[in-house]
Structure formats: structure tokens, C-alpha cells
Amino acid sequence: MLQILGITGPIFILIGIGYLSARGGLVNPIQVQGLGKFVITFALPALVIHALLEKPLGEVFDPLYLLAYGIGSQLVFWGGFLFSRLVRRDSLSGSALAALGMSVSNSGFIGYPIVAMVLGPPAAVALALGMLVENLLMIPLALAIAELGRQNGSGARAALQETFSRLVRNPVIISISIGLALALLDLKLPGVLAKVIEMLSSASAPVALFVIGASLVGLRAGGLLKDVAQLSLGKLLLHPLAVLLCFQLLPPVDPALKVAGVLFASAPMMSIYPILGQRFGLEGRCAAALVVCTVLAFASVSLFIGVMR
């Protein structure tokens, strides 16, 4: 138990520092937003490029990992969507956002620092592979369905076009494309540029954890017990269990990547979840779930570290 706390403790201490800094007025929301943009626009893309170029593409691209992580995430997504839509009678947009919150992790801000402390270098490879699933499959699917809930008839085509337009401008998607292109062409970055990429990638974890902590200030979970319970249970328990099940049933992958996939799935939902929900009038629900899942993740991540060990 002490070993697990030694791994997860520093992560949540950094989150706590970010929270207390924002709560005490040392940083304001505009500064926190700027730090978040730095991570999303520069640090995380640099981390992805660094991961894709650190090893030969054949060692980075693992189709069995993509299959297991993708199927596990899809199982939870559609399970959450159907439960929200058929049992709880939620709207199409609300069901899509609930499914998204249950099946897409905060891979860069929380998942990566945790997995990096447990496994070291394989964490960056798993991050790049996981982001392929999240950014090319899960997020576009959820947003397309949510947009369809706001439009009728011809709106479907417009929703798909808008989703695709946002996707191709995503810095992470751009970095994946650059990294894959360089890897396929077997090209190496010049020494100076490679060093810049390495320095930016190393800044990703601590700055990201500070941002997620600061972003929790002001969020409240009151009055949304059923929504928060569904999202917390789905994200922190069902998602990692579904991914673990897929790893067990499919042909074996690198044991380190298997551990990484389950731990990434055990992280809470992405920190931009309330921002995505705001477009559909669901920011309160999404923010409340983010607060609770981030707090409960200390226990769930520790649990799955123990299970995987």
C-alpha cells in the first residue's frame, strides 16, 4: 500500500498545489487557462512526437493494443449511451456526453504522469496509441452524436463537417500526423529541434497536473447525484475493467503496454469535459462529474496499480 501511495501521492500533491494556488489567488483563471493552452498546444504535441520518434515505428505502432483499448472504450461508450438514453431518458446530446465522460480518460494531464511513474518510457508510447483512439474515434463520435441532438435533417451533414473541421485543427492530431509522417519516412529531427521537443515534452506532466488542480476551483457537484454516480462508476471502474477484459480475451500484447492501457483507462475524464458540455448546456453536470472523479481517482488508480502488479 505504501508503494502505491508513493506512486500516486506526488501526482495528487501536484494537483493539490494547483488547487491551493488558484484558491489562494496566486494564479487567476486567465493564467490557468494560458497554462492549459500551453500544455495542449505545445507540451502534449511535443510529447507525442517525441514518443513516435523515440523508437522505430514498428515498435510504437501496436495494432493489438489499439484494438483492445478501442474495443474496451467502445463497449463502455455504447453501454453508457444506451443506459442514459433508454433507462434515464436523457436527451441525445446528454446521452452522448455521458458516454464520452465514461469512456475517454484524461490521458495527458493525469494518466500519463501516473503511468510514467509506474512504467517509465513505455508510458509515452501508450499515450500516443491511446490518443489515436481518443482523438480519431471516441471524441469525434461523441461530438457528432451530440451535435445531431441539436439539429434535424440536413443538420447531420453540417454536424459531421464541423466535427471534422475541429478535428483537423486539433494540435494533438497534427502532432500525431507529423510524428507518423516522420516515422514512416524514417526521418530524424535536427539536433536542436529534437532537444526543444524533448524539453517541451518533459514539461507536460507537472504543468498539466497543476492546471487540472487549479481548474477544480469553483466547481460544485451538488444536485447532480445520479449523473455523477453514473459517470464516476463508468469512468473509474467499468472503463478500466472493460479494457482489462479486452486485453485478456485478445491475443497478448507487451505486458507493460497492457498495464499502461488499464491505468490510462482508470484515470478520470479529460479536463476539457465541462468545456465540451458547455456547448450543449451541460456544463454543470460535466463539471460536477469532473470534480468527483478527480477526487475519487486517487483510490481507483491506486486500486488498479495494485491489481495490475
Score class of each variant (00 low, 15 high):
131 M>F: 11
170 N>P: 14
81 F>R: 10
299 A>E: 10
150 R>F: 10
69 Y>D: 08
237 L>A: 15
56 P>Y: 01
271 S>K: 13
211 V>I: 05
127 L>I: 03
49 I>Y: 00
287 A>G: 15
92 L>M: 12
31 Q>K: 13
131 M>E: 15
278 Q>M: 14
163 T>I: 12
51 A>L: 07
40 I>V: 15
72 G>L: 03
292 V>H: 08
138 M>W: 09
237 L>V: 13
62 D>R: 04
160 L>F: 12
300 S>E: 06
153 G>P: 03
8 T>W: 14
118 V>N: 01
134 E>S: 04
13 I>D: 04
33 Q>H: 09
286 C>L: 09
104 V>H: 08
295 V>D: 13
183 A>I: 01
298 F>V: 15
11 I>D: 02
218 G>Y: 08
249 L>G: 02
201 S>L: 00
22 A>Q: 09
2 L>P: 00
8 T>V: 15
255 P>C: 06
305 I>T: 03
271 S>E: 09
279 R>N: 08
275 I>E: 15
215 S>Q: 07
269 M>D: 07
182 L>C: 07
284 G>N: 14
83 F>H: 05
194 A>N: 10
244 L>S: 15
233 L>Y: 13
19 Y>R: 05
126 A>H: 03
15 I>V: 15
231 L>T: 14
241 L>I: 03
50 H>N: 12
7 I>A: 04
63 P>Y: 04
112 Y>W: 05
64 L>P: 01
103 S>T: 06
166 R>G: 15
287 A>R: 02
74 Q>R: 09
60 V>E: 00
8 T>Y: 13
157 R>V: 12
19 Y>S: 05
271 S>C: 09
26 L>A: 15
138 M>C: 10
291 V>S: 10
235 K>M: 10
212 I>V: 14
301 V>H: 06
271 S>A: 13
210 F>T: 04
235 K>V: 08
300 S>Q: 10
129 L>F: 05
78 W>G: 12
69 Y>M: 03
149 G>W: 07
51 A>E: 05
259 V>E: 12
296 L>E: 08
138 M>H: 07
5 L>M: 11
204 S>L: 13
277 G>A: 02
253 V>F: 10
200 L>M: 05
233 L>T: 06
214 A>Y: 05
241 L>C: 11
308 M>F: 09
163 T>V: 11
308 M>H: 08
196 V>Y: 02
17 I>N: 01
136 L>S: 13
254 D>G: 05
228 V>Q: 09
52 L>G: 00
192 V>Y: 07
163 T>Q: 14
76 V>T: 15
45 P>C: 00
81 F>Y: 05
243 V>R: 03
68 A>Q: 06
149 G>T: 11
98 A>D: 14
234 G>E: 11
61 F>C: 01
302 S>E: 13
179 G>W: 06
45 P>A: 00
195 K>A: 15
12 F>E: 09
172 V>C: 12
19 Y>D: 01
98 A>K: 11
125 V>F: 01
93 S>M: 07
34 G>R: 09
77 F>V: 07
36 G>A: 12
162 E>K: 12
59 E>K: 02
222 G>K: 09
86 L>T: 04
218 G>V: 00
89 R>E: 04
36 G>W: 05
61 F>G: 02
44 L>Q: 08
65 Y>N: 00
33 Q>T: 13
114 I>W: 10
107 S>R: 03
231 L>C: 02
